[in-house]
Design a protein around this nucleic acid. Structure first.
Lengths: 180, 180
DNA sequence: TAAGTAATGTTCAACGCTCAACTACCAACG
DNA sequence: CGTTGGTAGTTGAGCGTTGAACATTACTTA
């Protein structure tokens, strides 16, 4: 009864490195963003998704999917962003259960303000230590993992976002669209 | 004044894939471990580190470093593990400020019980979608990132663990040492 | 030995996340 | 219509993390 497919020595080493890298990198980016701009990466991510959406607004569910977040978490987070004046909710006319989250000018400004230092953090701690080839491969590998995860749990995840893997949109820098 | 080194289109794509993959994978592993065994990956990690240590015990600080955890978080976590009967604290004779965390037989048994399904999760969601070559490269890339992060923040991190990057030890399977 | 500095570990308050209700609404079917 | 089932989003309790403050003990230097 030893059906377990244990990890090989190489796999274990990769796995440990993965665990350490992801944990340390996330903690470092969080710390730098928190110290320089006073808000979390979770907020940043929400602001980015909204900034990229048409009219800078998104249905709550779509925003949750875009940010790989649970609906509950998103609802709480949007409430806090509303208190900051960075997002406002708006009820949906066509489906009265629904709600839009709108990015305000102040929210957009906060994103514009935070982006440069955050991008610099990402570059410093992730891309600078890697060769361009490494970076490209990391992306490919992660895309494979994402595809597998999205199709592997069709009923467990917050929702079944299509396994795109190739969304355009600029992550860090502020996307197209005029400020203010 | 536009000193920001923005991400290229390729870099952005890699970065987004990285963000999605790490978030989804962590959530999936957490969910499966939680549902099948009822405890978190944070606990699992602590149990693993303790199980690998001589006499299955470690100073709190060393354990915090090994698990890439803050002292505060570790202290809380160990308290909870103590309530489960999986770890016991012991005051250190040679340094009376210090404390050891000892893995109990029950704690070791819990790890032995959880390991197979957890390893299966890791394999299913990470290694199965990848080629062996991918897995090897992922490990190399992560090791580079870890090295950079560890040397880049000598005064900010919980502690200054030496930039090893090549610790042996078996991660998932239960390491050498007799059970019970 | 006394004073100053550093390290270990715990505790507390604030905050965010999770999970399970819960409200409100839509849509289909009889 | 009225019912049933499913969807959108919110809420609240419980729990874990964070970061700072704290007590205690060790080390270093005069």
């Amino acid at each position: 009864m030893t059906g377990t497919r244990w990890l090989s020595a190489d796999e274990q080493r990769s796995w440990r490195a993965y665990l350490a890298a992801t944990k340390l990198l996330a903690a470092q980016l969080e710390r730098e963003l928190q110290r320089s701009k006073g808000f979390s990466h979770a907020y940043y991510d929400i602001l980015v998704r909204l900034s990229e959406a048409p009219d800078r607004r998104l249905r709550m569910s779509d925003l949750a999917d875009a940010a790989d977040s649970s609906r509950s978490r998103l609802s709480h987070a949007v409430s806090r962003l509303e208190e900051l004046g960075w997002v406002v909710r708006e009820t949906c006319a066509s489906d009265r259960r629904g709600a839009y989250a709108n990015l305000t000018d102040a929210g957009f400004a906060a994103l514009v303000d935070a982006a440069p230092s955050h991008v610099e953090s990402v570059r410093t701690h992730l891309f600078d230590p890697l060769t361009p080839e490494d970076a490209r491969r990391l992306g490919e590998i992660c895309e494979k993992v994402v595809v597998a995860l999205r199709e592997h749990c069709p009923a467990e995840q917050p929702d079944g976002a299509q396994p795109d893997g190739a969304r355009p949109g600029g992550t860090e820098p502020v996307p197209a669209g005029s400020a203010a």
